[in-house]
Amino acid sequence: MGSAHMNDRERLTVAFFYCRNIPESGETERQALEKEYGPSIRLFPIPCSGRLDPVHLLSALEKFADAAYLIACPEGACRYFEGNRRAGKRVERTKEMIAMIGLEPERLGMVINTKKRPKGLGVITAEILERVKSLAPSPVLKNSRVEEEKPL
């Protein structure tokens, strides 16, 4: 196996599910971020963090992501009252579930935007990428990646 393959494996893919009310999260900004990071990030806008079904986080981990994060509005600033608070509890439970099969719970998380001077989507994603960069490539994807590379 060549070094290109190793590099490929070391590059993490992170899925971001974010509330559309996060500043600077419009279509233009999203495209710019995707261009900047390439396959390292996958962005999924949702109407409210409270609408996130934990199965989406698991699906991301199962299919392509080394980590999956939910980005929510600050406490008290949720358009749907307390969608963000409920989302937090569901993320916690989902973390417990992946821990039970031996995955690091840090592969899942929720980041709540700051109340004072809320950050834009770009800043938050950069912060999360920094936070998860020490994670090893997901053991879930290890085998499937090898398979995908076979034809090459």
């Binding site: 934990p54 698991l58 199962e62 099969i101 995955l103 994807l141 085998n143």
Partner: peptide
């Protein structure tokens, strides 16, 4: 449906991790 999806997903991941 939700819980079924989650359990199936978790079990698939566990199987993949074990190869």
């Amino acid at each position: 449906e939700k819980e079924t999806g989650m359990l199936a997903s978790i079990l698939r991941m566990a199987a993949k991790m074990e190869g």
